[in-house]
Simulated scan of single mutants.
Amino acid sequence: MRVGVFLFHESRNPGADAQVIHEAVREAQLAEAEGMDAVFLAEHHFDGNCAYVDPPTMAAALAMATTRIKIGFAVLQSSLYHPLRMAEQIALIDNLSKGRLIVGLGRGSMVNLHEYKGYQVDPASAQERFEEIEKILFQCWSGEPVKHEGKYWNIDIPMLRPLPFTKPHPPVLRSVASEASLVGQARQGRPVIMAAATAAGAAHNIDVYRKAASEAGISDAGIDRAIAESWVSRTAIIAPTDEEAQNVGMPYFRQMQQYRAAQSSAFEQRAADQNKAAAPPLQCGSPATVMEDFTTLAATGIGGVSVRFRTGPMPAEFSARALKLFMKEIAPRVRQEVRAPAFA
């Protein structure tokens, strides 16, 4: 199983934005130095939940600041973009990184509705826009003239420039936030990006994927390949001892929940539901404590896990130490479970 870091750096104070953005770049560089396979970027606007805001711009910066590590989107909020601009940005970043891009796409958050308002997009149209945009992206990367007449865009261009470095285009994964969307992608045999708080949750998702894909006529080899190219995102608070993880690290996660809940009633309800559960929606403890969950996750055959080490107002030093502990003590074990190459 591949391992990556998920950069989701919060900044509550506008005066701290520059510092937090540079800390995110340094965490990506640390991930590469420690031998991680990928760094994934989030997207949120207007609220400080994601300090660097614009993942294509951040990805371009990381392409220049790193040399080996793959750079992924988890995910681009596709309905907020113009399809031609998105196609150009992705192609350019793929060239700048020399083929290191992983393109994770989603319709956009249904928790932070203020983002749609800011971009003057009706949230009810998000899924339709997403489907149309993805169709246009693949046309743009074909190297052929692009003629498209749709509900939201009419496009007629001779050719998109530049074309992607990766042929025919970088790997494209869809975010799946519900079982219905997971089944929809499984029936097409497409790799996905999923969120799962536990290895058991990820295993359930993979069972659902396998069943739906098989019923759609996808071969066992095709199913294995799609799962081996899929990623699951996790949140983990890791410290040398369980006590420090719980007493020092966990409060940062709770503060993140409170901050986001104050901005969004939908997130407030989701956080309340999570906190009613028997266990919080993350892994928390020493490497020895969280080890079993990660090795069990690796045994499912999933291609990779991207771990968010920094939550809320957590200091950069705390999350950097967690990343190092993960790579020293957990990564060697989970990498033993690689079933098939993911974006090799």
Rank of each mutant, 00 (worst) to 15 (best):
H204F: 14
H204M: 09
W231F: 13
K211T: 14
T198N: 12
G217T: 10
S219A: 14
A202E: 07
D224T: 04
F267N: 06
R254D: 11
R234P: 00
R234W: 15
S219E: 03
I237K: 01
V208A: 05
Q255R: 14
W231K: 00
R210T: 01
G217Y: 12
A212W: 15
D242Y: 11
A239S: 13
I206G: 10
S219R: 02
T235M: 11
A261S: 14
I237L: 15
I218R: 11
A261K: 05
E268T: 12
A202K: 02
D207W: 00
A228K: 10
S233P: 01
H204S: 07
Q255V: 09
G217L: 05
A226P: 15
E268R: 15
M250V: 04
A266V: 15
R254E: 13
S265K: 14
T235H: 05
N247Y: 09
A216T: 08
Y259W: 02
Q246Y: 08
A196P: 00
A200L: 04
Y259I: 00
Q263M: 14
V232H: 01
Y252I: 03
R234N: 04
N205Y: 08
D220T: 07
D207R: 09
S233M: 15
Q258I: 02
I223Q: 13
E215L: 12
A221M: 05
A226H: 13
Y259N: 02
M250L: 13
F267A: 05
S264E: 11
E215A: 14
A262D: 15
A200W: 06
G217F: 07
R254S: 05
A203Q: 05
A245D: 12
A212R: 15
I218N: 07
V232T: 07
I223R: 12
E229W: 12
Y209D: 00
A226R: 12
S264T: 09
I223A: 05
A228T: 07
S230T: 05
N205C: 12
M250S: 06
W231E: 00
G249W: 09
G249H: 03
I223V: 15
A203E: 09
S230E: 01
N205K: 13
H204E: 10
A196W: 04
K211F: 08
N205R: 13
A221K: 14
A221L: 13
A216M: 10
G249K: 04
A221Y: 01
G217R: 05
A261Y: 06
A213Y: 06
I206T: 10
R260K: 11
A212D: 14
A266F: 14
T241R: 03
D220H: 04
A228M: 01
A226I: 12
A221W: 09
S233L: 14
R210K: 08
N247G: 07
A266S: 11
V232W: 01
P240I: 11
A197Q: 03
Y259M: 03
A228P: 04
M250P: 00
E243R: 15
V208S: 05
F253W: 10
Q263V: 03
A226F: 14
R210H: 05
A226L: 07
A261M: 03
V232Q: 08
Y252Q: 06
A228R: 09
I237D: 01
Y209L: 03
